[in-house]
């Protein structure tokens, strides 16, 4: 929406990205452990008792404008971690990621919404975060309010909203700001069917408007509809990569029919 990236074509380039996810147990983070650790090391023992999950291993790919990438793989294969790394939330230990163009990451259902603030205040914060000015924030509010059917609830704190209303608000907010690079996690395609009907049109608009899409999902229809290439991840590595149908058939172990009609 803003920034210098707007004039450049969107681009994502990942080169040899590896990321270890350190797991700190409640006791594992204490000062005592670390101090003790340095003592034992001095005594010649190995200090490798930290639990590390190898979340990503040597991931390389390049996406340009028009690319729509789907991420598949079993749970825990590193799909969400990869999305978070692309979004700049986690930094790779080795390798590099270059993202060019404005970015919007739909990763968390609440998208950092503060439950104690009103809907309106949350909308304002989101607008400021995206670098909108006063007038654009007003427009954002009108748009979100209409889509999420908020009415007078907009002036009440988000914590009293019903679950459905929170999802509507989160969704409306996330999809109101159109980025060049769109990163999307699974949950966005789940949701109550009634709402999904309307959401789908809006989401498709956004997906088609984005220059690059990276989508992580198990939903075969969405992959077939939206993605033109897939990366199949296993244990943090790229297991296979290639055109959607080919990789999907291999992944599912049976033939898939690309639909002529987009679902929904």
């Amino acid at each position: 929406m803003s920034g210098m990236g707007e004039h450049l074509p969107a681009l994502i380039e990942a080169t040899g990205v590896s990321l270890d996810f350190p797991l700190y147990h409640a006791s594992g983070r204490s000062l005592k452990k670390t101090l003790m650790g340095s003592v034992t090391r001095r005594m010649g023992e190995d200090n490798r008792h930290r639990v590390v999950v190898q979340a990503l291993r040597d991931i390389s790919f390049r996406l340009e404008a028009g690319d729509r990438l789907g991420l598949i793989g079993s749970n825990g294969a590193g799909k969400t971690t990869l999305l978070r790394t692309l979004a700049g939330i986690y930094e790779p230990y080795t390798g590099s990621i270059r993202v060019q163009g404005s970015l919007n990451a739909l990763l968390d259902p609440n998208l950092g919404m503060n439950p104690n603030l009103t809907g309106r205040e949350n909308i304002m914060l989101r607008g400021l975060y995206s670098g909108l000015d006063g007038k654009e924030i007003e427009q954002l509010e009108v748009d979100v309010r209409r889509f999420a059917e908020m009415d007078e609830f907009i002036n009440l704190p988000v914590r009293i909203y019903s679950a459905g209303m929170i999802i509507r608000l989160g969704f409306a907010l996330a999809t109101a700001i159109r980025p060049q690079v769109l990163l999307m996690d699974e949950w966005f395609l789940a949701g109550d069917a009634n709402f999904m009907e309307r959401a789908r049109t809006r989401l498709e608009d956004m997906v088609r408007g984005a220059e690059i899409l990276v989508l992580s999902t198990h939903n075969t229809d969405a992959l077939l509809d939206w993605c033109n290439r897939l990366i199949w991840m296993e244990q943090g590595r790229i297991h296979r990569a290639g055109p959607t149908v080919e990789i999907l058939e291999e992944y599912l172990g049976h033939r898939v029919q690309p639909k002529a009609q987009p679902a929904g």
């Binding site: 979004a87 700049g88 939330i89 990451a105 990763l107 968390d108 609440n110 950092g112 975060y129």
Partner: peptide, 9 residues
């Protein structure tokens, strides 16, 4: 935490 994990700031 919620904010840190859901958007880059």
């Amino acid at each position: 935490e919620g904010m840190i994990r859901s958007m880059r700031m």
